[in-house]
Design a protein around this nucleic acid. Structure first.
Lengths: 337, 337
DNA sequence: TCGTAGCATGGAAGCGCTTCCACGGCAACA
DNA sequence: TGTTGCCGTGGAAGCGCTTCCATGCTACGA
């Protein structure tokens, strides 16, 4: 019903065999130019749309890649939307479709679905999903896979990520440069590699500045807005004058708490986040952040995945990109410079 | 490579024919219970994963539906993420995959991609995409389609939406109840049906309250945060004490402008939005809104689409759901009650 | 002039599954 | 006991495409 014009029709109309018609339309070599033209013209005239399923079955490739992202992330964290968006663009730009797999909490079920859904050539797994036990199963399945993010333990699979340590250090150093002397950090879920690496960057910045880290200022969070708010509460009494939150959501939560508590940002406490998901405009104050190059990350991830799918598989090696320091009002202390 | 266990292996191991094995695994009638059990056991033992492409080719169904959503929407408007998320859940819950189609600005290309991608059984088109000229092409393609939202002109295709007029009226009435006497509205892109319907609701509320609409208080916006901010600027001098924004993004933009300008919310001006995409917590002040039942919308849309796919196609009729009034600080005027 | 390489083309075999149809066996009926 | 009918099963024909292989042709060099 949806399909009726088949390759055979095209072949017949252009007076060639199925084989030739197929070759002509797929740009395979060994077809005379005039024939190719005739076929493609016939195809156009008939409104031929190749049946993907058949092509997939015959060729073993579907031209579709999957993206696994935890259900909750897409809903509440702009990071998920940003990544999804960027991956979608990247996939489309490379003539591939994108199957979205929302990973529920229940483990096995998801994996089963994804693998059974078989019709994907490869899989992209978002950071936020890494650490879920079922991710292991996926990675172990014989399906080309690339992570978006850094896996805490496994190095047998390629991950594309921002350079977390150096970026976090940049953020903290920026606070130092604004005159902050006592800088805290609100961490992400510490099981996650990126969360740990950002703490490491926090330490690195201190080391570089010749300062000593006050361990009590490393406050655990979970990347959620609420946890940023809670952490901020704890920090108000601790005499800090700068806060580096491991993502923008927590930074926003902290900002909210500070504002409510009458703490002036950035004058009393300067704040900087990470990700670049909070629109820099239309917040009060606008948020400083390390903005992730989502499009570049997605492009790199998709390219890497396609390479693996087509067998051009270099050995797994992390790909790292650099975020950009965006200075907003939450950390700009003109008075203190 | 990714696939090696075929139905034939399962059939052989369980000592039945392909036909029976297929029937057994698909729950088709006409298979003795013990045979069915034997087959499913063999399937499990071999780790059989049916090849989707083959199944699709043979059955003509792919168990995959597509979601079209404008590229930009997913990135900047939480509405897109919310819808995508909800649809993903709904599709998965009904044992269907979800292909994500990010609609670029360029028209033809997108359509071509989507249709060529053929391997979807049906299509969901998000509100935000409605109005784009290429949507017409999609709707006209012989592919089951359901809209999420209301199409401004076409009624030959089913749409699932919130009851916009009544909901908008509820929001505005709520402002009246808080003591507002001069209420403005910031509209969405007026080409869109929902934008128009919400203005209609705004008028309806006035009519019900026996008030007359001041046309100058109907300020055009485009659903973007910035336009809310710009509109708010215009409104500050107009002596309004209440604003109904056609979505939360614009409400947030307005809130930002008001706060910057020293206008107290809700005391000077009360604000209410629409959508429920702004987290009600962690804003200052927290935003009142008409919260859309995203999950219900998605479920209804997917169900409707699946019905059409399987031929159980009732004639196109809009399905309408009701949002919920969530009262936040931006409109709660305890002092005035 | 013949042999041979090389190219464009067609034939046909699948890819792995679903499903129509025919068949054999059994129970229920006359 | 013979007939009818149903149920469970297997055979086999595709679904629409890709691709291997064989074929015929042209063009070239010997």
């Amino acid at each position: 019903m949806t399909q009726q014009v088949t390759l055979e029709d095209v072949a017949r109309l252009s007076g060639v065999s199925l084989a030739t018609a197929s070759r002509a339309l797929n740009g395979r070599p060994g077809v005379r130019d005039d024939v190719r033209l005739r076929v493609s013209e016939a195809s156009g005239r008939l409104g031929f749309r190749p049946n993907r399923a058949a092509r997939n079955l015959a060729s073993g490739r579907s031209q579709v890649i999957g993206l696994v992202i935890p259900s909750a992330e897409l809903r509440v964290d702009p990071y998920g939307a940003s990544i999804t968006h960027a991956v979608g663009r990247a996939a489309t730009g490379r003539d591939h479709g994108l199957m979205l797999h929302l990973a529920a909490e229940e483990p096995g079920d998801t994996v089963h679905h994804i693998l059974r859904d078989g019709l994907i050539d490869g899989l992209l797994i978002s950071t936020v999903a890494i650490g879920h036990p079922w991710v292991e199963e996926l990675v172990d399945a014989r399906l080309p896979t690339v992570l978006i993010g850094t896996h805490p333990t496994r190095h047998d699979v390629t991950g594309v990520d921002v350079e977390n340590v150096e970026s976090a250090a940049t953020a903290v150093t920026h606070l130092f440069e604004q005159g902050c002397v006592r800088v805290a950090t609100i961490t992400g879920r510490i099981e996650r590699a990126d969360a740990r690496l950002r703490v490491e960057g926090y330490r690195l910045a201190h080391r570089r500045a010749g300062r000593v880290v006050d361990e009590s200022l490393i406050v655990p969070g979970d990347f959620g807005r609420r946890s940023g708010s809670v952490a901020a509460h704890r920090l108000i009494a601790s005499g800090v004058d700068g806060v580096f939150a491991a993502n923008d959501e927590m930074a926003q939560g902290a900002l909210w708490t500070f504002t409510r508590a009458g703490v002036r940002v950035p004058d009393d406490i300067a704040v900087i986040g990470f990700d670049g998901t909070a629109l820099e405009e239309f917040m009060d104050p606008t948020l400083s952040t390390m903005s992730q190059p989502f499009d570049d990350i997605a492009a790199a991830a998709v390219d890497e995945l396609l390479a693996r799918i087509s067998g051009r598989a270099p050995r797994p090696a992390p790909i790292q990109l650099s975020p950009e320091l965006l200075i907003g009002e939450s950390s700009r202390r003109s008075s203190l410079r």
